[in-house]
């Protein structure tokens, strides 16, 4: 069973505010940051916190992140969604496809 994000010893939160942006820019931003912070994310030292009001991104970003071996949580906030991406123990993926 996957750990919840609150249980993880996350040291750094990388926040991306892509509200107002549409696809594919939102997915590209997420991919770029997953790549830039790959080591920290893979080591469990960081998590991505993405704020988006683009519903399509709540499908495309989690789908891509999960395929790369990350754990994802989507939460509805007021007027937008947050997508949390972090690493739990499991498969050793994590690079860009």
């Amino acid at each position: 069973m996957e750990k919840s994000i609150q249980e993880l010893p996350v040291l750094q939160t990388i926040t991306l505010d892509v509200r107002g942006q549409v696809c594919p820019a939102t997915l590209l931003v997420a991919l770029e940051n997953m790549n830039t912070h790959r080591s920290a994310l893979l080591g469990g030292a960081a998590k991505l916190h993405i704020m988006t009001d683009n519903r399509e991104a709540t499908v495309t970003i989690p789908g891509t992140a999960r395929a790369m071996g990350y754990t994802v949580a989507v939460v509805h906030a007021t007027g937008y969604y947050t997508i949390e991406i972090w690493r739990t123990t499991g498969s050793d993926k994590g690079g860009l496809p």
Partner: peptide, 18 residues
């Protein structure tokens, strides 16, 4: 769905591209 929002802080490069 309480999702109607207007965000003005959009990267200018994306605005010009659009």
């Amino acid at each position: 769905l309480k999702e109607f929002t207007v965000y003005y802080k959009v990267p200018i490069k994306q605005v010009v591209t659009a």
